[in-house]
Design a protein around this nucleic acid. Structure first.
Length: 668
DNA sequence: CAGTGAGCGAGCTTCCGCTTGACTT
């Protein structure tokens, strides 16, 4: 045996072994093999006494991280070390991103490699690409490793630094972190906006118009203005239910609405203008982890966690490429395969003359290509030997990938301007001329679907019917698991490997709960968010990660020293904020219910009025409060006997060690 | 004197990101 090649994933290893042949032994390291100690007891004895032992980082001596091999990785590391000792050379073929570079470096240290190692990087798994990569190895990029170590330490210091402030101020077992707290802040901001939203009433007046001699189906037109002044709609009101100060809109009464309806019925309308505009829509790019989770949620009602489990199976059985990626790019081979499928199904005209090229944007690290069917020839879904969820998800991937190489949808949009005296109306419709990629894949909600008849300017038309209805301005909608991931990704927060688990952490802490496909924030979640916003506003800001990434890029480029960066972040920053943090439970004043507040007492969420505090069940949805419900809560009617005195600390750990222990019972 | 209960003090909780099985539900 001559050369040992180490990759991150088992499936990838098996493939590469096939391309490299007998002179090489390919093994997987299964991700990170060393990490900061999770608990103080994991810290080696000689460091236990240090003031920083709980953090696992020597924050007083230049921010030296203390790394250990976790117990579950010990056997693997020993085996790799043995194989490395027998090999002439070791090629570290971990992923070509910041984390991959760090894993390679940890391997060097943990396996005790001296000079006989090289870094190998590739971006697609084909025989040519792999053989080329083996011939073009490079040195390890120590600056990039330094950037990853900084990222790791920031997350440890933020998480282990701030969480104890929550234990002291709110209750045990709670957590804060750069990613989860930014996510929680986004959810809480939206939930509070919903709770504080005051609906305004506005009128919608619509008429069914009969086309004249030109013929065609009746169509719907809505009143948009009166004497040239726009009719007030949802956009003209602010969240307090008041008309926006700068709004030029006209607010009408019920009588006026009725008058307009009668006017329309009696007089009919005249065509003022007809505008026809061509439009086109491009196909969406091939899937990344985030867009796959969004599409699976929408089309298959599959949550992010489930989606990743199913995708993992498809990956392991060789049906799709790697499922944790932030790049929408297709290899040349895949692009050709997609074009061939489209041409075969819908003819050569369904494919543009030159291939579409998709590039990642923002801070994507692009260690992998898009999620797509494998191979030079895509296997059609019905021949893939799949069923159930796996078939459904494969089909989605297949369709999206092929559609991404098809021609645009083309259509025309018609806008009719109508008038009935001083009352202005409008109607719009779309006609698809060339469905393009939507023959295979469509995920947008269709609007203005009606086809408008070919009426002419100046033509007088009768109103078949007219109606008015009051509507209420809607509160901002809640996030679903998929839309939250979309929001986090666009803010650069979280990574493909962690999107699904971010959601799981928020649920496990009882900060959020899923109901009817939407993410609700619990009272506990709102209180934690309020506390963090008050004491650690900088950390929970979505923009924190953007700034961090810029700094990490500087470290990777050798322009900034790791120690200087961490000194600024911790010693002169967060450590001081933590020391100055107030250990007081946060209080949420309810703007719609003066005198009522929600806070915690003795590690329990309570509702308070006039100094009187009553336990508040986490199952009571914050924006469901009404004066009646508040009355019942304060009378103690909503508290089930079992819940009395139950602390908010999550579920007891289901570990073997706790099996024999008696848990304190609060039952009478 | 033995068993019980209140009161006190100590120890624990926690992060993000990269990978899969080995575990329970």
């Amino acid at each position: 045996m001559k050369t040992l090649v180490i990759v991150e994933s088992k499936t990838k290893g098996a493939k590469i072994q096939g391309y490299l042949g007998t002179g090489y032994k390919v093994r997987a390291c299964f991700g990170h093999i060393r990490d900061l100690p999770a608990k103080k007891e994991d810290v080696p004895a000689k460091y236990q006494v240090e003031s920083w032992a709980r953090l696992g980082i020597d924050v007083v001596g230049g921010f030296q991280p203390l790394y250990i091999v976790p117990t579950e990785k010990k056997k693997l590391v020993a085996e790799l070390r043995k194989l490395a000792g027998e090999a002439d050379e070791v090629l570290l073929a971990t992923d070509g991103d910041r984390e991959g570079e760090a894993i390679a470096w940890h391997l060097i240290r943990a396996l005790g490699l001296k000079k006989n190692f090289q870094r190998m990087v590739f971006h697609e798994i084909t025989k040519e690409a792999i053989q080329k990569a083996v011939q073009n190895t490079r040195q390890l990029d120590y600056n990039l490793v330094g950037a990853q170590e900084s990222r790791r330490m920031i997350d440890r210091l933020a998480g282990y630094g701030v969480s104890p402030a929550l234990w002291q101020s709110i209750g045990p077992g709670l957590s804060a972190g750069r990613v989860q707290s930014a996510a929680l802040a986004s959810l809480a901001r939206r939930e509070l906006a919903r709770m504080n939203h005051v609906a305004a009433d506005y009128w919608r007046i619509a008429a069914r118009i009969v086309p004249g001699e030109t013929g065609g189906e009746p169509f719907t037109a809505s009143v948009v203005s009166i004497k040239g002044q726009p009719l007030a709609g949802p956009k003209d009101y602010s969240s307090d239910g008041q008309l926006k100060a700068d709004s030029p809109a006209l607010v009408i009464t019920a009588e006026q609405a009725e008058q307009i309806v009668n006017f329309l019925k009696e007089r009919g309308v005249k065509v003022k203008a007809r505008e026809v505009l061509p439009y086109s829509t491009k196909p969406p790019p091939p899937f990344t982890t985030s867009t796959l989770q969004q599409a699976a949620s929408k089309a298959l009602k599959m949550g992010p966690k489930k989606t990743m489990e199913v995708a993992q199976k498809l990956y392991e059985s060789g049906k799709i490429t790697y499922m944790r990626t932030d790049s929408p790019a297709l290899s040349d081979e895949a692009t050709e395969a997609a074009r061939a499928v489209a041409a075969g199904l819908f003819g050569p005209a369904s494919v543009p003359s030159s291939p579409r090229v998709f590039k990642a944007k923002g801070n994507a690290q692009e260690a992998h290509e898009a999620i797509r069917p494998t191979g030079k020839v895509f296997t059609p879904p019905d021949q893939a030997g799949l069923e159930g969820d796996e078939l459904a998800l494969y089909e989605l991937v297949f369709h999206r990938t092929v559609a991404s190489q098809m021609i645009d949808l083309q259509g025309s949009k018609t806008v009719l301007s109508l008038a009935c005296g001083a009352v202005g109306l409008q109607s719009s419709g779309r006609v698809v001329v060339e469905p393009g990629f939507t023959r295979l894949y469509a995920d947008d909600d269709k609007k203005d679907e009606q086809e408008l008849p070919n009426v002419q300017e100046g033509e007088a038309l009768a109103a078949l019917d007219a109606k008015c209805e009051t509507k209420k301005t809607p509160a901002p909608g809640r996030f679903t698991e998929a839309t939250l991931i979309k929001a986090l990704e666009s803010a650069g927060v979280g990574r493909p490997a962690t999107y699904a688990s971010i959601i799981e952490v928020l649920k496990a802490r009882q900060y959020t709960a899923l109901a009817g496909g939407q993410m609700h924030v619990t009272w506990l979640g709102l209180l934690v968010a309020a506390y963090l916003q008050d004491q650690f506003a900088n950390l929970v800001d979505l923009a924190f990660t953007v700034k961090m990434e810029e700094d990490l890029d500087r470290i990777a480029a050798g322009e900034m020293k790791r120690e200087d960066y961490l000194t600024g972040f911790w010693t002169n920053g967060l450590a001081r904020t933590i020391a100055a943090a107030k250990h007081q439970p946060p209080t949420l004043a309810l703007s719609k219910f003066p005198g009522v507040a929600v806070t915690t007492r003795h590690e329990q969420v309570v509702m308070v009025r006039d100094g009187h505090a009553v336990p508040l069940g986490l199952d009571i949805v914050p924006d469901s409060l009404t004066p009646e419900l508040i009355g019942r809560i304060l009378n103690g009617e909503t508290v089930k006997p079992r819940e009395r005195g139950a602390a908010l600390s999550g579920k007891p750990k289901t570990r073997k060690s706790t099996a024999g222990k008696k848990t304190k019972s609060s039952q009478d």
